[in-house]
Write a protein that binds this DNA or RNA. Structure first.
Length: 937
RNA sequence: GCUGAAGUGGUGGAAUUGGUAGACACGUUGGACUUAAAAUCCAAUGUCCAUUAGGACGUACGGGUUCAAGUCCCGUCUUCAGUACCA
């Protein structure tokens, strides 16, 4: 019987699906284990060979855990809201839901053919109203909560209202907007409900505020900081400008410290944690208040170096700082306004590209040094960012290079407050080796001591206090898009109101076109009628008619990360229509035990999900404040692009090796037209595009050689390899084995299809070893010593490998095992059966087939993982390498039970040793038990 | 600039964590089978010297520790990733 992998694989995929082999129950007397992949966005291009890498790894682990007796939850779904479907809709008019449905079908077919052990009964899609109902529900929970810094957790907004009515807001330590005014309980109770709502909005965990946002005109929407790479949009690479807009935000900054602390308790890759730490950007220092001379205004600055306060020789404000206009003296107004004009015109990108240029302008105003009372000139400079700290800095040129450069450029005096330090060339920013001088009460102190003393003195005179600052900004939550979750929000007198949760979901209405309205409203402004699941309320023309009152609705939609921030918990009970998940489901599955996905989500999905999880924890919906115990970043599989070289200005292509000095243009050629020897199929290439039809080709050695480069796999680079074709040609088991064999899971590695013959031949060899012409040829003979040694070596290695996620070396181990068994002519059932169980996580189809050929009528997935026994691999003698002066000369077989002295005497009596020593006395003989014998002559 | 990861044959990568570097596979070369091709099987394959036996060198580079270093320490270089006026 030949190895007909296509038939076998289709047969078992059908079997698993029909028997619901991988359905997980929410209760079991087995221990639970939750293995999760980052769910995909179903793009129109379908899966390429790089996408399944992480899914194969998690599938191996999930299958392994089932063999080990765990009740395994291994679900899959789709992150199906997103920009591409919407952009396709804008171009073609096709509803994004239709596009998405088509794409999901393709994805599902592709995933199925690889043979994953997903529990599809729990499938979810973020764009299904039955799912986004719960995204909207969480939004409502966040809206109805505030963050209490004293209890260090989120609490219901009702408790805040009670606090306000009892004692005003002076004693309330909450995470809130900077501009809240202090009021008494009396004042609160006297406010109108509209005024109260306006104040509460400054405290809610999701709030509406006029914020400076990243506006991308080409995409017609705002972007979060993590959606911008190098000053341009992550999707499409379009320019991004700063713009003030009223937007929903999430108060993630309230959780900054807990998000930082939480990293200590989770088993995530260190580099990824480091990215999150940097993104949160905690810095410890102080705020210092400077009085402005001849003004009532006070300028607050944040500094990490209050110890250098006596080195202040000027102050710098960001051009956008609110006090700039107030304090600038009359004679400087023109100059200052001109400067603000020019800086505001510069886009984020220009500013980034041009960090070296020093620019600024003097306001003519002076502040007063808090201790010396000396006048401190106030400047404006665009090296100070409005968005960080207070948007103002105290400039200490001797201790900060930027302040130093600024001072040099504008001839501002530089004070040296460090003992025995030369600052004639550059600033001295080393905190560890410094003694403060010329600084009154700080003289002679080290950084650490001076820091404490400076803060103490500032607090004493009421002009400053210790402060911790975070780089992490609140997350903008509004998108001016159609294909996203609608907000469950309407407006009464301009104040947002959430719609009662009983009316959820607020489904996405139909629109005629997916572009903004003529009045500049988001696409939802085009909706004629919103469907509403209630008899009480009716919605027409973007307004909610509630008896007689007409309320406008929120027209923005939620960002992409909304749907992915709690999906891992929803899988635990994904068909529940009454709750996001039942108490018993969350109590049973607790949290994700193993999460596999890319590190590109470090500052997006993975941070936002941790934030929402902590919120859900505070609200007592979940029992853990981290959602994933362990996380592994799979590396990317890269494509090997092929290039042809066209002579500039001519339709002539020159083979790679003979380009010489000619000016050529490098053009991507589709990799399917190139063979493994880098030779181009010219006929196919000419047919590819009309402009190449009549092209001339200059050959070398009779062929056209292409250039190769490793790049990210992408349609536009014509280097995509489709897994469908691989499955047809070699089978899913070969694909799975090969993706693992390619290298360590976390590593970036190039794909090269020709290598797959190695693992494919291995599967054929395995098949041939046990399948004869008339079916399986396994015997019931007792395995011999060698057979057992091979098996147990393999068990040990494979188990270790899976536990350590080094799947690549297991594949080699299988190959060695089959080669050895083949040489031993081993046909024993007692060897094959455990071997198949070892292999079934990696190559499930062939394992199932041979398993059933052996007469089993249940799936191999339920079989128990074989136990490893040391006895079978212990040797009676060991080969000792003998070295002289550290150099290996020969080996000797010696019995294992010898003492050190016995080994030594046997080695010294050996003929080869005598020859090596040539009559010399050895100085020393070193024996490391079980390792090596070294003789020093 | 800062932070992190990594540099091993023609290629992807192994190396039980200090103990025979290059497992396993691709590729290449030669051979068997075949009219031929494919498939399959066998052999060789780090570099250099040598007919062989064998020897020398060899894990980015330069030092060091050790009987013994890809692995540990110091310095240098290179590549990739994240971040970027964060006060």
């Amino acid at each position: 019987m030949k190895y007909h992998f296509n038939e076998i694989e289709a047969k078992w995929q059908k079997y698993w699906s029909a028997n619901q082999t991988f359905k997980a129950e929410n209760n079991s007397n087995k221990p639970k284990y939750y293995v999760l992949d980052m769910f995909p966005y179903p793009s129109g291009a379908g899966l390429h060979v790089g996408h399944p890498l992480g899914y194969i790894a998690s599938d191996i682990y999930a299958r392994y855990k089932r063999h080990k007796g765990f009740n395994v939850l291994h679900p899959q779904g789709y992150d199906s809201f997103g920009l591409p479907a919407e952009q396709y809709a804008i171009q073609t008019g096709q509803h994004p839901a239709v596009t998405t449905e088509d794409n999901i079908k393709t994805y599902r077919r592709q995933l199925d053919q690889i043979g994953f052990s997903f529990d599809w009964s729990r499938e979810l899609r973020t764009s299904d109203s039955s799912y986004y109902k719960w995204t909207q529900w969480i939004f409502i929970q966040l809206f109805d909560s505030w963050y209490n810094n004293d209890s260090n957790k989120a609490e219901s907004i009702e408790t805040l209202k009670t606090l306000f009515s009892l004692k005003g807001n002076a004693g309330v330590n909450a995470a809130c907007d900077d501009d809240v005014l202090i009021f008494s309980e009396k004042a609160w109770n006297g406010f109108t409900s509209l005024e109260q709502e306006q104040i509460l909005l400054k405290y809610r965990l999701t709030y509406l505020a006029e914020t400076e946002v990243n506006w991308c005109a080409s995409l017609g929407t705002v972007l979060a900081n993590d959606e911008i790479i190098n000053g341009v949009s992550e999707r499409g690479g379009f320019p991004v400008v700063r713009k003030k807009m009223t937007q929903w935000s999430m108060r993630i900054s309230a959780y900054a410290d807990r998000l930082l602390q939480g990293l200590e308790s989770i088993d995530w890759p260190e580099p990824l944690k480091e990215i999150q730490r940097n993104w949160i950007g905690k810095s410890t220092g102080a705020t210092v208040s400077f009085n402005v001379k001849n003004h009532s205004d006070i300028i607050d600055v944040f500094t990490t170096r209050p110890d250098t306060i006596f080195g202040v020789s000027f102050m710098t404000l960001a051009p956008e700082h609110p006090l700039v206009k107030k304090i600038t003296v009359a004679t400087k107004i023109k100059e200052v306004e001109a400067y603000i004009q020019t800086t505001s015109k510069r886009s984020e990108r220009d500013r980034l590209a041009d960090v070296k240029t020093i620019s600024g302008v003097f306001t003519g105003a002076y502040a007063e040094h808090p201790f010396t009372k000396a006048p401190v000139p106030i400047w404006i400079g665009d090296y100070v960012l409005a968005g960080y700290g207070t948007g103002a800095v105290m400039s200490v040129p001797c201790g900060d290079q930027r302040d130093y450069d600024f001072a040099k450029h504008f001839n501002i005096p530089i004070l040296n407050i460090f003992q025995d330090v030369d600052i004639s060339k550059h600033a001295f920013s080393d905190k560890d080796n410094v003694i403060i001088a010329q600084s009154d009460f700080l003289n002679g102190l080290s950084y650490k001591k001076a820091l404490k003393r400076a803060i103490y003195e500032l607090e004493k005179i009421g002009q400053g206090q210790g402060k911790i600052n975070y780089r992490l900004r609140d997350a903008v939550f509004s998108r001016q898009r159609y294909w996203g979750e609608p907000f469950p929000v309407y407006y009464v007198n301009g104040i947002p109101q959430v719609i009662d949760a009983q009316f959820l979901p607020i489904t996405l209405p139909e629109v005629k076109k997916y572009l903004p309205t003529e009045t500049g409203e988001p696409p939802l402004g085009n909706a004629q009628k919103w469907a509403w699941d209630t008899e009480k309320k009716e919605v027409v023309d973007n307004t909610l008619i509630d008896n007689v009152t007409i309320h406008p609705l929120e027209l923005n939609t939620m960002p992409g990360w909304a749907g992915s921030s709690q999906y891992f918990n929803r899988y635990m009970d994904s068909n529940n229509d009454i709750e996001i998940f039942s108490k018993s489901a969350i109590a049973y599955w607790e949290q994700v035990d193993l999460y596999i996905g890319g590190s590109e989500h470090a500052t997006g999905h993975l941070l936002y999900s941790r934030f929402w999880q902590k919120f859900m924890y505070d609200m007592d919906y979940v029992g853990h404040d981290e959602f994933a115990k362990k996380l592994i970043n799979q590396g990317m599989i890269l494509g090997t692009s092929a290039f042809v070289y066209r002579v500039e200005g001519e339709n002539k292509f020159i083979s790679k090796g003979i380009i010489g000095n000619q000016k050529v243009q490098q053009i991507h050629a589709d990799v399917s037209y190139v063979n493994t020897s880098d030779e181009l199929d010219i006929i196919a290439f000419k047919k590819w595009r009309p402009e190449f039809k009549d092209a001339e080709f200059v050959l070398e050695d009779g062929v056209y050689k292409v250039g190769r480069e490793v790049e990210k796999m992408s349609k536009s680079k014509y280097n995509v390899v489709n897994p469908d074709q691989i499955c047809i040609d070699y089978g899913a088991d070969s694909l799975r084995l090969y993706e693992m064999f390619l290298g360590p899971l976390e590593q970036y590695k190039p794909w090269n299809t020709s290598g797959i013959t190695g693992v494919h031949n291995f599967l054929k060899k395995l098949w041939k070893l046990y399948m004869g012409d008339d079916g399986i040829k396994v015997s019931n003979t007792t395995p011999n010593k060698d057979n057992l040694k091979t098996l147990h070596k393999t068990i040990k290695k494979v188990e270790d490998d899976i536990e350590n996620f080094s799947f690549n070396t297991s594949v080699s181990t299988f190959m060695i095992a089959v080669n050895e068994l083949s040489a031993q002519k081993c046909t024993s059932r007692d060897i094959l059966e455990p071997l198949l169980i070892l292999m079934s996580p990696y190559a499930p189809h062939i394992s199932e087939e041979l398993w059933s050929q052996l007469g089993h009528n249940t799936s191999i997935a339920t079989a128990e993982f074989p136990l490893f026994s040391e006895n079978h691999i212990i040797e009676s003698s060991k080969t000792y390498p003998i070295s002289f002066n550290g150099k290996m000369r020969f080996t000797m077989d010696l019995p294992l039970d010898l003492s050190k002295e016995e080994i030594e005497s046997q080695v010294m009596a050996n003929k080869k040793t005598q020859a090596q020593l040539k009559g010399r006395e050895p100085k020393k003989v070193i024996i490391v038990p079980g390792k090596i014998v070294n003789i020093v002559g």
